[in-house]
Nucleic acid binder design. Sequence first.
DNA 1: CTCATTTCCTACTAAAAAGTAGAACATATT
DNA 2: AATATGTTCTACTTTTTAGTAGGAAATGAG
Lengths: 114, 114
Amino acid sequence: MKETRLGDFEETLLLLVGILDMEAYAFKIAEEFESQTTRATSIGAVHSTLNRLSEKGFLTSEMGASTAARGGRRKRIYTITASGQRTLEASRDFKVSLWNQFPAFAGAKLNFNV
Amino acid sequence: MKETRLGDFEETLLLLVGILDMEAYAFKIAEEFESQTTRATSIGAVHSTLNRLSEKGFLTSEMGASTAARGGRRKRIYTITASGQRTLEASRDFKVSLWNQFPAFAGAKLNFNV
DNA sequence: CTCATTTCCTACTAAAAAGTAGAACATATT
DNA sequence: AATATGTTCTACTTTTTAGTAGGAAATGAG
């Protein structure tokens, strides 16, 4: 069982997929990324990262139905796998645990019903 | 102002420095890392990462006084800089914000007095 | 004095993550 | 038919992060 780790950008995209749910397709994800951060991205970077996440088994995807709207290549909708979700949770739990031990962050109350 | 980002391992070490406080020297940090995770490290990896964090301006360090204990090279004590702390906070806030938007994590209660 | 012990340090390599460039496809509008 | 629009896709390069190997300093104990 190889330890597979997540990069910064990867983790954010994975979370965005979870947030966007049925709207999680590359273009939208890129837009959402830019709107939630101050960082710029490129659609290419998003695509290659989504690929990497899929290879790691954290995402699956399938082509959506074609819409009636103008402009029309079909969207590929991404979904988090169980493994992706577990990784996200582990990452969260670990971070929360460290934050709670860091006195400078002590003011924050982090209560999880895990 | 170049955007300086943190890797996974870097962020963990930075947090460990904050947690260990006056005890934050490379050897101890490496031990603490191993005790808080299931991952193994090497002292060399820790050293080179601490160096990188220092170059990025997230850490400073100075040699501590020599102790009376057996074995004796003096310890280099690391301290988080204001910039390091801000980066850590920004990273935390961003992550918490995403988690809160992710329905699968909705059960968690994250209250910050930020 | 010599050895074991605790620690630091750096140059280098390897691996992984991020980003770029450029092509292409499907549909609607004109 | 031509063009604009919204979107996917991949091979490749660059940059960054992580890890390795090997050396060395300082001190106490024997």
